[in-house]
């Protein structure tokens, strides 16, 4: 009962917000974008942060989820469950997300297997290769739209749905971190040989971390395509993977709080800069510049963070731990 209560509360609260804010289209779009990035960051943090395996191919898992979900939704676009109206769409949407997540999880399993043998830089190269392979395959598959991508994916996504998945992802990451599983992952991150000497089956845990992480990345991809409506392979290139890595490194590897905060701030930053330029009367070409300087800006930001605080803004601390400590002290 206790386990389900927060989920029910979150669902109700998000539904209420949806009724209040659902008509502000740009807000919903931005919030959805932020939500998807938060899911990606929190899920990548399970591999890179908690388990200490460096993966830089997260966009690949997202792409697998996005394309799987899109194909499913396009195929079932004309099908309705009689008598359910809009609810019918949402049922198909959830099914599409689940399929996308499952497909990505399968890929996570396949990528996780070589990670048994590879460490550090070598694993990073494999995951990078995986991400690129996915993109190139999609780009050269006519039935997936090739370089033009898929369009006309039904816009089933809502503010409430995206943020409900965000909530679930954070909940899973948090419970994972404080569980026996989480302990095992931390041990692997700290010292793999010692973890094994403690009886931790390091191989199995690393694969599991990949599978869980890839699943959520796939779901994020599914959400993404259902509010973008158009997806192209170029949206899942290497730079997107790096964006996600930047989120978690800046936020603090191993901190879910850090992953969430950094994903929110760094997604909104370019938008804020753009509207700031708009407000001071700059012409639209200056807004375009914002997009161009985003990447170097990230680079500079990362260098500054690494110099000033190499463990990331939050280190491995969590917001809820702070609350707990305060309670204990009081």
């Amino acid at each position: 009962m206790r386990a389900w209560a927060p989920i029910a509360v979150a669902a109700a609260a998000l539904f209420a917000l949806q009724l209040l804010l659902g008509r502000f289209e740009f807000f919903v779009y931005l919030a959805s974008l932020v939500g998807v990035n938060v899911i990606l960051a929190v899920s990548l943090n399970i591999i890179n942060g908690m388990t200490g395996q460096f993966s830089i191919g997260h966009a690949g898992f997202m792409a697998v989820g996005a394309y799987t979900a899109s194909v499913f939704s396009l195929a079932t676009n004309d099908t309705r469950i009689a008598g359910l109206g809009v609810v019918s769409d949402q049922i198909f949407f959830v099914a599409a997300l689940a399929l996308g997540g499952a497909a990505a999880a399968l890929c996570g399993f396949l990528v996780g297997l070589p990670s048994l043998r590879l460490r550090g830089d070598y694993l990073a190269i494999v995951t990078l290769g995986f991400g690129e392979i996915i993109r190139v395959i999609v780009q050269n598959t006519p039935s997936l739209g090739g370089p033009l991508g898929l369009s006309g994916v039904p816009q089933y996504s809502t503010f409430a749905m995206v943020w409900f998945v965000v909530f679930i992802t954070v909940l899973v990451a948090r419970r994972l971190a404080s569980s026996t599983h989480g302990r095992a992952l931390w041990a692997i991150r700290e010292d793999e040989v010692a973890a094994e000497a403690m009886g931790v089956d390091t191989t199995a845990y690393k694969v599991r971390a990949f599978v869980v992480s890839a699943f959520f990345a796939g779901v994020a991809g599914g959400l993404f395509t259902h509010f973008q409506s158009v997806i192209t392979p170029a949206q899942f290139d290497f730079t997107r993977s790096i964006d996600i890595v930047v989120f978690i490194v800046a936020g603090g590897l191993g901190s879910t709080t850090g992953a969430v905060s950094a994903a929110v701030v760094l997604t909104l930053l370019p938008e804020a800069l753009r509207s700031l330029f708009g407000a001071i009367g700059a012409d639209s070409s200056l807004s375009a510049v914002v997009d161009q300087i985003r990447k170097p800006l990230y680079g500079v930001l990362l260098i500054i963070i690494m110099l000033a605080r190499p463990q990331g803004i939050f280190g491995t601390n969590e917001a809820w731990d702070l609350f707990k400590k305060k309670k204990a002290a009081a």
């Binding site: 931390w186 041990a187 700290e190 010292d191 040989v193 010692a194 094994e196 000497a197 403690m198 009886g199 931790v200 089956d201 390091t202 491995t316």
Partner: peptide, 23 residues
């Protein structure tokens, strides 16, 4: 493997200590 020997009653304190520094 090392992790399969632990439940059989063997424990190894490896050379160079191998503690978990950030725990």
């Amino acid at each position: 493997k090392a992790n399969e020997l632990v439940p059989k009653g063997m424990a190894h304190a490896p050379e160079g200590r191998g503690i978990f520094p950030n725990l």
